[in-house]
Amino acid sequence: MKRKLRDLPPALLMLVPSLGLLTVWVIYPLIKAIDYGHKKCDISSRNCRDVGWDRYFSVFQSTQFQDSLIVSLKFTLMTVPIGLVLGIGLAVLADKHLKGIGIFRTIFSSTVATSVAVASLVWFVLLQPSRGILADMLSDWFPVLKNPGLLNDSGTALPAVALSSIWASLGFTFIIIMAGLQSVPRDLYESAFVDGAGSFRRFTNVTLPMLTPSILFVSVVLTTRALQSYGEIDLLTQGGPQATKATTNIPYLIYGNNSVIHNDIGTKSAAAVLLFLLCLAFAALQFRGFGKRVHYGN
């Protein structure tokens, strides 16, 4: 007890910078957003009146929120599993002692150097319908690339954004899984080999279980990114095609330029808090789902 009190002054001094910053820029705005969620304000968001906490329910049940929730979930289901499988595939492919393998590893991790803005704009250039390179090369087989363009078609817009996002995350996924693979002790493989396990059996019985911590980490990060993706939507489709709002996910419903709640800080805050709860629920689910199967020993 005495020790605790003696350490208190230096501890406070050392914690103040971080604690202060987090309070002002994370905790305070969160509380404030929760509060705004039950208010209606004027165009400058200055004069507000109370409209009741059940506002959260009506926002949640509104058509627009439900639609964007479905877009968010679809986007997550497209990007996370495919991103994971591709990342694992690349890592397994590159986890061999071959001459020049380092070059391939650098190439596979290269997209980690692209930001959301750069990656999205790269695909924006590639997918441009009348002059883009993909339309130019492939539109004979895939006419949608040109008319109306992958990003302009209600059916293909979300998968196209997902493609850009998967590509952008590939480098990150590859690096993590690669590191996970390299920490698998070689003798485990050898004993499996002695037991006569084929390469597929070795992968499912030895590699995958040893990779679970990495896979859990990657899937949590990818899911968070997918649920919070704003930049790629803003740069590629602006939530469109507008006929179906096929890419208006929750962040875009909140922050998009052409959103019906654009100037309504109350509804925006309510939707943002709901997004926060959704992220929490997903994180909890993933930790529970993987939790039992994560293999930490080595």
């Binding site: 949640f60 509804t267 939707a271 909890a284």
Partner: peptide, 26 residues
């Protein structure tokens, strides 16, 4: 349990029809 409940809630709510988001509030 909370997470599972939340997920069920989300899915259930996603199935029920909704009003316009601009209706929310008085």
């Amino acid at each position: 349990r909370f997470a599972a409940l939340a997920a069920v809630g989300l899915i259930a709510a996603a199935c029920s029809g909704g009003d316009d988001i601009t209706d929310s509030g008085d």
